[in-house]
């Protein structure tokens, strides 16, 4: 146990010494209890249920705290040395027995370290999933391009929960800014299937209900073809290939004009 504590000393900032002590004690107690039942081979039986639970908790916690796989596994494998030391004292006079027992302890702890590793990876996967949710949340900004015009660039995959966020953000901004035109740009959406299309259509309808108009831009040529083959009808929706052409439509609707200035005629602007 001291070894486990020492091993982790350099990581003092990640977990307190007391916490480590407690984890080691728990694991060791459970392990000794399991061993008492005489089962050294199969760690997937009820005998080891408690050991596995404790081990999984520790591994998942370490994955979340940012421990490396090596550090997580050393926690388990450092038990090996400790147990072997105990066995050596007990069976000092009978090397054959000692040899057998050491083999058993070895394979037992190898198996446990596999369990620790598996749950560690699961813990990391959970972290990744949570992060991707967070990225989805933050990557749906609503931009006020001009008085009365909102633009919403959508980047990444549109799933049901994300569409909900997009739609809520957009409707909220329409109310807050009193905008009359919203541009949904999908050039950053890699795949437009029937569900994504359905969500886009719903968002357009909701925008209309708010009294605003919605333009979908960024429809790449290959996406346009695919939509047609899927049998999706977007003829009721204003669609544009680029954000620039969508902006042009929006400016025209608001009776705005963008043009280059003749510098000779307007020397003051120089």
């Amino acid at each position: 146990m001291k070894m486990q504590v020492d091993d982790t000393m350099q990581r003092n900032n990640l977990v307190s010494r007391e916490e480590l002590q407690r984890q080691s004690e728990e694991l060791l107690t459970a392990l000794l209890q399991a061993i008492k039942k005489g089962n050294f081979d199969n760690v997937y039986t009820d005998d080891y249920a408690q050991v596995n639970d404790i081990l999984s908790d520790i591994s998942v916690m370490r994955a979340r705290q940012g421990f490396s796989p090596r550090e997580t596994n050393r926690f388990v494998l450092s038990l090996k040395q400790a147990l072997c030391d105990v066995l050596e004292q007990e069976h000092a006079g009978t090397p054959e027995v000692l040899y057998k027992e050491i083999l058993q302890v070895n394979s037992l702890l190898d198996n446990l370290s596999i369990i620790a590793f598996e749950t560690y990876i699961k813990g990391r996967e959970d972290v990744i999933l949570r992060q991707s949710d967070e990225i989805n949340e933050i990557s749906t900004p609503v931009i006020r391009v001009w008085e009365g015009i909102l633009a919403l660039p959508i980047i990444g995959t549109l799933d049901s929960s994300r569409t909900q966020t997009v739609m809520e953000n957009l409707l909220q901004e329409i109310v807050e800014t009193g905008s009359s035109i919203a541009i949904l740009d999908i050039s950053g959406v890699p795949t437009v299937d029937s569900m994504v299309a359905q969500h886009l259509i719903k968002t357009v309808s909701a925008t209309r209900l708010m009294g605003a108009e919605c333009i979908i831009s960024g429809i790449r040529p290959e996406i346009a073809q695919t939509i047609v083959h899927l049998g999706i009808d977007l003829s009721n929706i204003v669609t544009k290939a680029t954000l620039a052409s969508a902006l042009q439509v929006a400016f025209a609707r608001l009776n705005l004009q963008v043009r280059s200035i003749d510098r000779m005629a307007a020397p003051l602007l120089k």
């Binding site: 569900m195 290959e222 695919t226 083959h229 899927l230």
Partner: peptide, 17 residues
């Protein structure tokens, strides 16, 4: 090519869903 790739990936997306 890109068009055929997009078609195949979109079909795959439908079946995964």
């Amino acid at each position: 090519n890109l068009i055929n790739q997009t078609k195949l990936i979109t079909a795959a997306s439908e079946l995964v869903r």
